[in-house]
Design a binder for these strands. Structure first.
Lengths: 200, 200
DNA sequence: CGGGCCACTTACCGGTCGGTAAGTGTCAAG
DNA sequence: CTTGACACTTACCGACCGGTAAGTGGCCCG
């Protein structure tokens, strides 16, 4: 199946918004990427804000899909949690774009009146809290403790994901590759220690 | 001592760049904040890029100052490391601005030809690696492992710092405050587990 | 008193921004 | 053969962008 013009625009928008941020990209830039004029883009998504909103929405659908896959693949809550979190690690360019975009959203939604994205984030966090609460160790802990632990894992994942170009710039390809190799293992260890078996 | 106009501009610039990013702020916005025209700003910092560079530089000086304070306050490497990392946690508005600004820089310096800021970051990471290497546990580990562990702690710190407005938006002031209270303890525990006493 | 530096102003430049208006060509339904 | 929806175009708009040019007023130094 060939991509529709609309989907091509969405994909180009995601990549550019991730790389330069909402204000760093013009709708003409995005349209150019697909070989169209900005008015063609506005034909599909009446305003820049609406286009951005649809990009966020497509990401949130992605996460829900991954969550369902993980839940179906195993019935062990610890396994589900680990797989869901590790799936957030950037393996492909598409993953990296998603991480960067959400980090920017985290930084920007203070000033944007973007309640929509706040609610999507809430749903995502609620899902994670539920997954953690399925583990016996966490059953009798207050919400704040669960959230704090989750957030530390998310921080370790996403901060690193977003740093990839910078780290590559500092250390060069070879040493970055070496770092990347150990990061995965260490992350699994961290999730294990912080979330799955905190007492051990 | 009253602040010079130049310092006022630097402070206003830091706050606005942190909140909206480089492209989201005009030099006129920054000048307005201090009650001047943009040409007055250009009088002090010839270009927008140079102003931004000076903001980054002042942050890097801040870090060096904190590092020296921490090194002077204790001779125990484990203590120094813990204090240095915990000092990065946002306590004041100024700390939060710094975290946000650096996170944006991490996201943007792929596209900006901002080698300068890459070198600040390298120096900062080098300092941290040296502090960790001062601990006997890490003496015989490869660089990549040390860096990975450091990065996980930095991620847990900075991702959370940057999320403050979003989390407050999702959970409200009361529940955010509860989260904030437990986050500090949990962070200290994490640094202890990941960096200072990984075997324990 | 005179001259030059400093901090700052108004006026203006070419260019880009998001968005509107008014088409143009294609193609399927009636 | 016409009609109209659809996907797209060119031609604009006012607002704002970063930056330049050319002052203006105050203050220190001789």
């Amino acid at each position: 199946m060939t991509q529709t013009t609309r989907d091509q625009l969405l994909e180009a928008a995601a990549a550019l918004f991730a790389e330069r941020g909402f204000y760093g990209v013009s709708i003409a830039n995005i349209a150019d990427e697909v070989g169209l004029t900005k008015q063609a883009l506005l034909h599909h998504f009446t305003t820049k804000e609406k286009l951005y909103g649809e990009v966020l929405q497509s990401i949130s659908r992605d996460f829900e899909r991954v969550r369902n896959e993980v839940m179906a693949a195993s019935s062990d809550p610890a396994d589900q949690l680990l797989q869901f979190l590790m799936a957030k690690v950037s393996k492909t360019e598409h993953d990296a774009i998603r991480s960067r975009l959400l980090m920017r959203e985290l930084l920007d939604n203070k000033r944007r009146a973007d309640t929509a994205s706040v609610w999507y984030l809430k749903a995502f966090l609620d899902d994670l809290v539920a997954m953690v609460r399925a583990l016996p160790v966490w059953r009798d802990t207050v919400d704040a403790e669960v959230l704090a632990a989750i957030y530390q894992a998310l921080g370790a994942i996403n901060y690193y994901a977003v740093s990839e170009p910078t780290l590559r710039g500092i250390f060069g390809d070879a040493r970055y590759k070496a770092l990347d190799k150990v990061y995965d293992e260490r992350l699994e260890w961290l999730i294990q220690r912080v979330l799955i078996d905190p007492s051990g």
